[in-house]
Design a protein around this nucleic acid. Sequence first.
DNA 1: ATGGTAGATACTCTA
Length: 256
Amino acid sequence: MKIATWNVNSINVRIPQLVEWLLAVQPDVVCVQETKTVDENFPEIVLGEAGYQTAFTGQKAYNGVAILSKFPIEDVQRGFPDDDEDAPKRMIAATVKGIRIINTYVPNGSEIGSEKFKFKLDWLQRLRLFFDETCDVATDVLLCGDFNVAMEAEDVWNAPAYEGKLHFTKAERAAMHYVKQFGLTDIFRKLNGPVREFSWWDYRAGAWQKNQGLRIDHIWVSPTLANRSISCVIDKTPRYLDLPSDHAPVIAEFRP
DNA sequence: ATGGTAGATACTCTA
């Protein structure tokens, strides 16, 4: 079972790259973030032709998340239960082959101390509450997505300089850690040790060329899944293409 | 170096 997460930064711009990548990598499930489209314009037909069923929730211009799967997608939950209609579309959960998958596009936070930063921390509190209320840590649970948080020094290209900056503040890490304390394991770190690899490089200032990135795209799983995890890799291949997403996909593989 | 680039939208916001 191969499960991936990828912030595509507009699914309609990236659809040729996404389909080519799906055909090459053959993941069973892909959690996509920043689709940036209303549901009417979601490319479900072309993804269906590539062999994937889809569940999605989007809005105009910003946010938007989707789950693509070769297997039936069950019990879809779009957004938090207490979200109102104009809440940003940043979370979709579904069950595939008995695995409860929670796909998140965590708020960016904009500027430290801003209203958007507070919203990010509050959103992560609500994410933990969602786990407490709807998930059983003794079952197969997988949280993935663009967390917009780097958790440790190895996740940052220049940790001393980045300390206290957006994506790497103590407050963001603590909020994310509280989600993790539900009982989840960062399987990239568990399987690869303290390597310094990144999943996101800013479009600006030549960050990609200089490998000045962050590891902010994650796959965290419950103990039963952690015990069956075989590999977890960041696939930088699509980041080399012309007109790439600023994020690279992360792929995890599990024994049956 | 407080910029830089990319995407969606509509004369700017978000990341």
